[in-house]
């Protein structure tokens, strides 16, 4: 079991809970879709998993360790084991594709010879090997998201968290990107993807966790549950 949530509640300021009493278990190597309408709590769930925010109640375990109380070093270790991808890519506009991806390796202090070797490999795998020297604004949305994905996987994390990675992409581009996710998943990486793209969820036939108003209302393998 790589991720476990027990009785997790999260409330922003006052108002009703963004997540209420969530209990889930995720095995290593699973591909999970987090579905639900806007405001259901998908992004909140993703943020809890890489400890951008902390739960008000309940425990979250990653690799059998509670992440509720971590010191700085442990937070760093958690982040290195978790890659994140967002709908808006979050690339650095002044850096080239190569530099954007290399930046993630520099940040965890990998030696330069390794960076020079691994970055082109991963860009190749993402199908953007020829874009290394381009700047993000010179790329299409799909290509930018591949750069973001390359950056998320470059340090070989155990888990990839993706918050609506296809949200800004057209169907064909989305399919290409989903194929890359499937490939990464096939290599053993656990993937948790928040999405409200019914078509993708129905086609992939993976485990779906359905959220509604902060409650977990469905957990099954198959199509769109709501």
């Amino acid at each position: 079991m790589i991720i476990q949530m027990t009785n997790v509640c999260k409330k922003y300021e006052k108002g009703k809970a963004a997540l209420n009493d969530i209990n889930i278990e995720i095995q290593k190597g699973e591909f999970i879709f987090l579905t639900g309408q806007s405001g259901a709590g998908k992004s909140t769930m993703i943020k809890l998993l890489f400890r951008e925010i902390l739960p008000d109640e309940g425990q979250i375990f990653v690799a059998n360790r509670s992440i509720n109380r971590l010191n700085n070093v442990e937070v760093v270790r958690l982040r290195r084991n978790t890659g994140v991808v967002f709908q808006d890519f979050r690339l650095m506009e002044t850096k080239t594709v190569f530099e954007n991806v290399a930046f993630a390796m520099k940040a965890i202090e990998e030696p330069w010879f390794l960076i020079k070797r691994r970055v082109p490999e991963v860009l190749e795998k993402m199908g953007i090997g020829d874009k290394a020297d381009s700047f993000p604004r010179q790329l299409s949305g799909g290509e930018q998201q591949r750069v973001a994905l390359a950056r998320a996987v470059i340090n070989r994390p155990m888990i990839i968290l993706a918050d609506e990675p296809t949200g800004n992409l057209d169907p064909d581009t989305s399919d290409d990107l989903m194929n890359i996710f499937s490939q990464i998943n096939a290599e053993g990486t656990t993937i948790i993807m928040a999405t409200h793209d019914k078509r993708i969820v129905n086609e992939k036939r993976k485990r779906v966790l359905a959220l509604k108003g902060g409650e977990l209302v469905g957990d099954a393998v198959g199509g769109w549950l709501l």
């Binding site: 890489f50 979050r90 650095m92 930046f103 993630a104 940040a107 340090n155």
Partner: peptide, 16 residues
């Protein structure tokens, strides 16, 4: 700011 955010996401140490 962007770079700092990315560094935090990928697990750069505070001193780095």
């Amino acid at each position: 700011r962007e770079e700092i955010r990315v560094m935090k996401y990928v697990g750069a140490s505070n001193w780095f």
